[in-house]
Design a binder for these strands. Structure first.
Lengths: 239, 239
DNA sequence: GCTACTATTAACTATTAAGTTAATTAAAAC
DNA sequence: GTTTTAATTAACTTAATAGTTAATAGTAGC
């Protein structure tokens, strides 16, 4: 066997290697920019195997996207109920997943107007997320009468923007979005803004409702930072 | 002259037509995706003229980006001091400028790690913007001790995310980010969150400072919607 | 009106990319 | 051990792309 390499055939292994390489290449270059030659090289398989396993470059791309979206569906299901915790959770899991973020961004910028990959599933996930916000609002943990679709869009914006626009983050903060220092500061800020958004109720609420919600919020907020004490003092002043 | 088209030579006009077509094509397709053939066709000039006027596709791209960034530098300079107004202003001018947003996004996703186009200018602009936030914070219009670079990043996130990720906006809200209905709802939300973020002072402030800031905020807020009236009533209650 | 310059048109070139065809060979089936 | 199947390697094909070369013709200068 001197100098002769034995070829071991394992279609599943080949398929997995191509898939992993494709995730990396599509994330880096998008569909149009990724080269099947490069994917094959990265996977250390013959280019022909890509067509053998997945059919076309487009089919491979769909599969990569479908699986990544499906994998990341855990984000919504595992989101805590408390708003600031939810924001942090989304950031920690989704906001720092560079491949996922970039795939979403390539999808965004590729200008398709047709049906999205896993569109139905994603709609359902997002509806679930907005429904949870609605419950939190109804239970008094979020201000009344704010637009919850806009709130949810804004949550996603706050969470994934650093990875989506790294050059802007670099220009403003002199840090890479993946830098642990940046992540720490971002997390602290998201904690703050999460608490801030979910804090005081809307000013137009009736006093009785406000008192009740105050009490609920105070109880819920008892483990919070001392920024929560001030609203309680205001409540005492009103009574 | 029957049936014979007269060619009128005007190099400036040709250059301008190519530039305008290039802005559209680069915004739509990015650098790699845009085709010089398509740019020339859109501009209704012969492809050769693109090289005659701008040298290479890359040089044309730089020029388009440079000029667009320079044009949009007005955004920071014309931003109002009041936080919520600033947010709305950024949204109304920058957040709905699709070409600009997409050029920034293409830049983001194209993975360059070298020097950005107009990098120095942009850094200065962003430093100016953060300095304004610092002044607002010092003057009591923004909460103490929040991270202003994170705040500014978050402003940009809230403002341009809908155009950056239109498919997500579509999935969540069933509207296009350019739809006037969406724009209206977004603007209202940004008004709310802007007020929210810049609202109550940190709980650790002294009461005297609080009263003074309340008074200042009330004066600044006198032209606002009726959500501002209730804090005035609270102020009367305190006195 | 003639000449020189240059804006414009038309055609060509070398390279690259996705996909295809042909050949080889590992391994399963008999 | 032999045959068949299918996983793998190697080479080929067609179309598209940025850029280049050659030719034409509008217009400024004299």
């Amino acid at each position: 066997m001197a100098g002769q390499r034995t070829i071991i055939r394992d279609l599943n292994r080949t398929r997995d290697k191509i898939f992993a390489a494709a995730l990396t290449e599509f994330s880096a270059k998008g569909f149009a920019g990724a080269r099947v030659d490069a994917i094959a090289r990265r996977a250390r398989v013959n280019k022909r195997m890509l067509y053998y396993c997945f059919g076309t470059k487009q089919d491979l791309y769909r599969e990569v996207l479908r699986r990544k979206i499906s994998q990341r569906a855990d984000l919504i299901d595992s989101t805590p109920d408390k708003f600031a915790d939810a924001l942090l959770h989304l950031y920690k899991l989704g906001g720092t997943d560079r491949d996922f973020t970039r795939l979403m961004e390539w999808e965004a910028i590729d200008n398709g107007r047709g049906k999205l990959i896993a569109e139905t599933e994603r709609r359902e996930l997002f509806e679930k997320a907005v429904a949870r916000l609605r419950r939190a609002q109804r239970d008094g943990f979020l201000p009344k009468q704010i637009d919850l679709t806009q709130l949810f869009i804004s949550m996603l914006a706050l969470v994934i923007f650093p990875m989506v626009m790294p050059q802007i983050v670099r220009l403003i903060s002199d840090m890479e979005p993946g830098d642990p220092r940046f992540v720490r500061r971002r997390a602290a800020f998201l904690r703050w803004i999460g608490d801030r958004i979910s804090g005081d109720p809307a000013a137009t609420s009736s006093t009785a409702d406000k008192v009740n919600r105050r009490h609920t919020e105070f109880a819920a907020g008892v483990s919070h930072s001392k920024t929560r004490i001030h609203p309680a003092k205001k409540l005492a002043g009103l009574r």
